[in-house]
Amino acid sequence: MITEPVISLVNAVLFILLAPLAGGLIAGIDRKVTARMQGRVGPPVLQPFYDVGKLFEKENMVVTVTQHFYVLSYLVFMIVAGALFFSGGDMLLVIFAFTLSHIFLVLGAYASYSPYSHIGAERELIQIIAYEPMIIFTAVGMYMVTQSFNVSAIVNSGIPIILYLPGVFIGYLIVLTIKLRKSPFDLSTSHHAHQEIVKGVTTDFSGSNLGKIEIAHWYEYVFLLGVVYLFFGFSPVIAVAAIIIAYFLEILIDNTISRVKWQLTLRSAWLIAGTLGIVNLGVLYYLKGVIMP
């Protein structure tokens, strides 16, 4: 007889071990697909692993040693957030841990006192405040449908959440663009190629620190796509298909739309959260008795 805490623990450990592999692969496929969309051959699918491996081979170079602390904290709390999520923990707690980890990245960028990192940090913060309300609405919406904030309960509810929360789902996809650092919302830093603020938040990180940031991104991918899974938790097959389609859409948007200014990012994210999110939740709230199981 396997008890629930044991399953949670196993899930968390599996996440910690496997998420970087999955995340790295996703990043690799992302780059390959992007290249194909641009009519290029593109790097090998395993390229992200080569990159990170390379970064760990490089010299340890910093502006201040405190950078090490912030980057390590960023990675650790990203893992904590993800592990909590996959062990079926409380959605809100996961979101707060997730925010915490990002704040560490921002602080790391501030610590170096370089103009590029600084603007990157400010923009990263703007991104955080742009997506946070929508992510909270996502959790609240799931609660309204399943009566629980617990990820395990949400998955096991067997309710087709997507049918109740279509607006929230679209809103989530839009903030997902911000989170995946995809154009048009790749304000603070973008994954490949450089932009007008050099590399934004990551400008002053190099070597193993940059490698850790990259790994944290992999964990983040898996977590973010895990949330997409929740919407379709009633059927794993559909869920996986939805994740693939959603991610493909993100890549398509990335390659077809140019970067916007932070003002537009903030406004559009809030507008989406404020309309799609709230309206969807509001409808759900007042029709509780009518359409809810």
């Binding site: 051959v41 790097p43 990159d51 190629a193 450089h194 050099v198 590399k199 400008t203 190099s206 940059l210």
Partner: peptide, 12 residues
């Protein structure tokens, strides 16, 4: 980029 080469624009 086939060879993994990226133009980073950042010495670090």
């Amino acid at each position: 980029e086939r060879f993994g080469i990226i133009n980073t624009g950042n010495p670090k």
